[in-house]
């Protein structure tokens, strides 16, 4: 899922300088799971904005905020509230905010910083798991992503820097390559590591990317 984090309230207020009537959108999927754009966070944001003298003209949890048709249909249903606002505060990821901005016709401000594609370990604990490299390597790395979990995105094994299985760049992180080694060893598949991987094809991740399902 897309992991997001709410921006400092000061930054949000700064965006909304001179905008008194605000419409708030959230998102039913990732941002709800990250507690950055569910109904509860929208209600809290509404209260805070009102405490700071703003009027909230309406709120909605888009289902989800990254789906154009859904966003368009939902915003249409609330067009009166939307039309009376000076700005939209979008409590979704960066994608969700762009989708809303495409239809809102008034300025749309992000309430969140979008961090990464990651995993929910438990409530409030997330870690990055995939950098959307465009050609998944997990098939030979025991299901552990070296592009994301190795600080240098190495593909031919570790640098010399791990100590006690921890990454030299940040000792709070496990060295991805020690993890990969251990799991492949358990599965008796260490041989896969002997094959040289040439430089990765980064053209597969040249942005902005587009994808249309072929028939």
């Amino acid at each position: 899922m897309i992991i997001s984090k709410q921006k400092p309230f000061e930054e949000i207020l700064n965006f909304l300088k001179g905008k008194d009537k605000i419409f708030i959108t959230g998102c039913s999927l990732c941002a709800t799971s990250c507690m950055t754009g569910g109904q509860q966070q929208i209600d809290e944001m509404k209260n805070k904005l009102e405490e700071h003298g703003k009027t909230v003209t309406g709120t909605t949890v888009l289902d989800p905020s990254c789906h154009r048709l859904q966003v368009r249909a939902t915003l249409k249903k609330q067009k009166v509230e939307l039309a009376s606002a000076d700005a939209v505060l979008c409590m979704a990821c960066g994608d969700g905010a762009q989708t809303v901005a495409a239809f809102a016709k008034i300025p749309v401000y992000p309430a969140n910083d979008t961090l990464f594609i990651g995993e929910v370990e438990r409530i409030g604990h997330f870690h990055e798991a995939c950098k959307a490299c465009g050609q998944c390597e997990l098939g030979w790395t025991a299901g552990i992503c070296p592009i994301t979990k190795c600080a240098k995105s190495l593909l031919n094994g570790p640098c010399g820097g791990a100590t006690n299985g921890k990454c030299e760049v940040d000792p709070d992180n496990d060295c991805a390559w020690v993890l990969i080694y251990n799991r492949l060893k358990e599965q008796d598949m260490l041989d896969t590591l002997l094959e040289i991987k040439g430089p990765k094809d980064y053209s597969k991740a040249a942005h902005p990317r587009k994808y249309v399902v072929g028939r």
Partner: peptide, 28 residues
């Protein structure tokens, strides 16, 4: 060599390239 991560140097805000690792440099 693969190289140390920029975070340990005097420009820790630099983007690390790591387009090729030590094996790839040898291949090249």
């Amino acid at each position: 060599l693969t190289g140390d991560h920029p975070s340990i140097g005097d420009h820790p805000d630099a983007r690390g390239v790591f387009d090729m690792d030590s094996v790839n440099i040898l291949q090249a």
